[in-house]
Design a protein around this nucleic acid. Structure first.
Length: 499
RNA sequence: GGCGCAUUCGUCUAGCGGCCUAGGACACCUCCCUCUCAAGGAGGAGAUCGGGGGUUCGAAUCCCCCAUGCGCUACCA
């Protein structure tokens, strides 16, 4: 039964941090594996030594784990098909490259980078499509001996068929066919002894018994060449599913590692670590990413990982590229935040506040959380929304104290009355509400008009969490102090009305 | 330039020949609730399915052409 077991892999190159597109690819592979009770493998394609970034691997693994995309085989977890780093499998690629040369399906190429560059320039000048001119494909034994004598280290190139066509089936797109004449002889083994993606990928997918390849659709053009490799090596190719690219929010151009900005200059997170730092929940990211290019039906959008796994299916993947909607992500993150138990949310917000230099004990935070839970879209929103719990608001515009339908005089009166009433009020939510409503009524003011100056005095802003709960948490001392400050501020701003 | 992929409300999508005078969600607008803001509830506006030809009794759904967008065209992945 082993041969029927689904085995899929996510094969990132450690040349950069994990971004949303890569995470989505990893997620789809993970979902597919879980759906079929198969294995999800993480393989590190570290064959590009010039672009290698030491921090990338740790970031990729951290990001995947944060999202809950756990691999069954790969770095740190091991597995029977290792090693899972291509840099540790060099001998394998070399072996198969040489094998292909022996079979007459590949050849050594001694062309210098300069020659290749010059060739491309000429092709461009003549308006011809670029591509290797197969100079070394037809070398004589003597020419080869000469190159070798000069000590030139060759690359190994695949001998692509000169005519006919190659096609393959894609689960999402159907059959894709290309004319072999449009294929050039790609490099399989570089002169530094490392394989290119094409060789390493095919060799490893075969050796690791990968059954399905889900990867970004930018790989479609090279898939025919991979087919040729499988065919000449006598291997059975896996089943392909090329995933649509993720476009940036404008819908023009793929969302890359490059930073994108909103029209007003706000920077969009692109890397998973950036989403994390911006206060998005991994559960929300998981749900959202699953819906980029896939959907279950025409209604359901909030789904648990279990539901997504149970329902995920390749034919339902949309072939068209999708723009990444930050608006929708924000909404979904809010949905997940609201669904969290308050204690859980408090635990998640605490480190965010700490990061902003605000230390709160958990019991206090657990009292604050219900006040802001349905008002924040990201964990980071809590920082600004709770700032007045940590410092007395100062230096705000005293005009904010004056409500829309209020005069400076009436505002001063309201503040004085509030100050008076709150000296003795019961500082519980219910007690405060009762006292303040009664105070408003005694002044003949509408509750809203009366509450506004209190709100501003206590929080420094016109928009805040519910007033009574806020006052209760702040406590009598701080509230009275802030009311006193507001009173002085407003009196100074309106000297004629002060007494 | 060549090759490839894609094309349904602003955005994400449902739709796989008749259930579509195209459904849902985000965003937007209005109203309700209401101490502000949110959340929640009720509504509204918004796509003739990129364009043009076919096939068919009937097409968003099948075929062809065009346009546009994106991708690939490296000793990068």
């Amino acid at each position: 039964m082993a041969s029927n077991t689904v085995r899929v892999r996510f094969a990132p190159s450690p040349t950069g941090y994990l971004h949303a597109g890569g995470a989505r690819t990893a997620l789809f592979n993970f979902l597919f594996a879980r759906h079929h009770g198969g294995s999800f493998i993480l393989r590190i394609e570290d064959t590009d030594r010039t672009r290698y970034e030491p921090d990338a691997l740790a970031d990729i693994m951290d990001s995947l784990r944060w999202l809950g995309i756990l691999w069954d085989e790969g770095p740190e977890v091991g597995g029977p098909y290792g090693p899972y780093f291509q840099s540790e499998r060099l001998h394998l690629y070399k072996h198969y490259a040489e094998e292909l040369v022996r079979m007459g399906a590949a050849y050594r190429c001694y062309c210098s980078p300069e020659r290749l560059e010059a060739m491309r320039q000429e092709q461009a000048a003549r308006g011809e499509p670029p591509g290797y001119d197969r100079h070394c494909r037809y070398l004589t034994a003597k020419q080869i001996a000469d190159y070798e004598a000069q000590g030139i280290v060759p690359v190994i190139r695949l001998m692509s068929p000169l005519e006919g066509e190659t096609s393959f089936h894609d689960v999402i797109r159907g059959t894709i066919t290309v004319d072999n004449r449009t294929l050039d002889d790609m490099v399989l083994l570089k002169s530094d002894g490392y394989p290119t993606y094409h060789l390493a990928n095919v060799v490893d997918d075969h050796l690791m018994e990968i059954t399905h390849i889900m990867r970004a659709d930018e790989w479609i053009p090279s898939t025919p060449r991979h087919q040729i490799l499988y065919k000449t090596l006598g291997w059975t190719p896996p089943i392909y599913a090329h995933l649509p690219v993720i476009l940036d929010p404008s819908g023009k151009g793929k969302m890359s590692k490059r930073k994108k900005r909103t029209p007003d200059g706000r920077e969009f997170p692109v890397l998973i670590r950036e989403f994390r730092a911006a206060g998005y929940l991994p559960e929300a990211m998981f749900n959202f990413l699953a819906l980029v290019g896939w959907s279950y039906d025409d209604k359901t959008e909030i789904l648990t990982p279990e539901q997504i796994i149970a329902r995920f299916d390749l034919p339902a993947v949309n072939a068209a590229p999708a723009a990444f909607s930050y608006d929708k992500l924000d909404w979904m993150n809010g949905v997940y935040i609201r669904a969290l138990p308050a204690a859980d949310l408090a635990c998640r917000i605490q480190p965010v506040l700490a990061q902003a230099g605000r230390d709160v004990d958990l019991p206090t935070l657990e009292r604050i959380v219900p006040l802001i839970q349905e008002r924040i879209k990201t964990l980071n929103d809590a920082v600004e929304m709770t700032d007045f719990f940590f410092a007395d608001p100062q230096g705000y515009d005293p005009r904010l104290l004056i409500g829309k339908k209020m005069t400076p005089e009436a505002t001063l009166e309201a503040l004085r009355r509030a100050l008076d009433v709150l000296q003795t009020a019961d500082f519980t939510e219910a007690g405060l509400e009762e006292s303040l409503r009664a105070a408003a009524e005694s002044l003949g003011m509408k509750p809203g008009d009366f509450f506004t100056p209190v709100r501003v005095a206590v929080t420094g802003k016109t928009v805040s969490p519910p007033l009574f709960g806020t006052l209760a948490i702040l406590g009598r001392d701080r509230v009275l102090r802030r009311l006193g400050y507001a009173l002085r501020l407003l009196s100074q701003a309106n000297p004629t009305t002060s007494n």
